[in-house]
Nucleic acid binder design. Structure first.
Lengths: 115, 115
DNA sequence: CTGAATCCGCTTGGATACTG
DNA sequence: CAGTATCCAAGCGGATTCAG
């Protein structure tokens, strides 16, 4: 976990997940354990370098566990820790808002077409 | 509002508020209307350029209203729209999580000192 | 007071190639 | 497969100055 915190809880949260990639990683891992390659594909387009760096950062912050299997070919699995899982309410709120927003945009486009 | 959306609600939300500054602006404006200078001070340290550009972006996204008063000295007030206000649950979730996180860190530091 | 304009450095991310 | 290493481009944000 991070020791340097802001006095403001919102800012504290921002320190940990103020990042497009981290939010997307969270979204994926909330569905369950995933391998490196699975993550890469499901997130969309991320270079391995970027994905790795963000996963490492989330490990340091205690959000993600990394399990290495001594196999050939190699397998590495990423899982949310309890702390990482506790971010679910935020993701849920984002999902709810995004859903509403999409509906409003769709409605607006429809009205525009009817003019 | 933005017309280009992602299929994923979470990503849609990220398009609008995936930004440290925007979240902080939201936090401030959820308390009510504020002037440019007030925002600047309460957010911490932001150059006027950066604050302006983010406010403009949020205006375009329909989150913020900007009201100009023809006075000397000039006064400009920023207020959340209904859409902007509807982001409150996300901010609340972030606040809750940040509060818990701060408590955990404090507890951990205490334990460390007692060792 | 509220910005707009300019310059500039740094971080972030993308592409690519390579290794265990 | 799961990264690491390198290089490079673009964008973002900071500082500063100036204007209405």
């Amino acid at each position: 976990m991070r020791d340097k915190l802001s006095a403001c809880p919102v800012e504290t949260t921002l320190l940990v997940i103020n990042d497009r990639w981290k939010v997307l990683i969270l979204r994926e891992l909330l569905d369950g354990t995933k391998r490196f390659g699975e993550l890469r594909k499901s997130i969309g387009t991320v270079s391995p370098k970027v994905l790795t760096s963000h996963l490492r950062s989330m490990e340091e912050d205690g959000l993600v566990d990394r399990e290495i299997f001594a196999e050939v070919p190699p397998r590495v699995e990423y899982t949310l820790t309890e702390l990482g899982d506790s971010l679910k309410p935020i993701l849920d709120a984002m999902k709810d808002w995004g859903t509403d927003y999409q509906a409003k945009v769709k409605l607006k486009l429809k009205e525009t077409n009817e003019d």
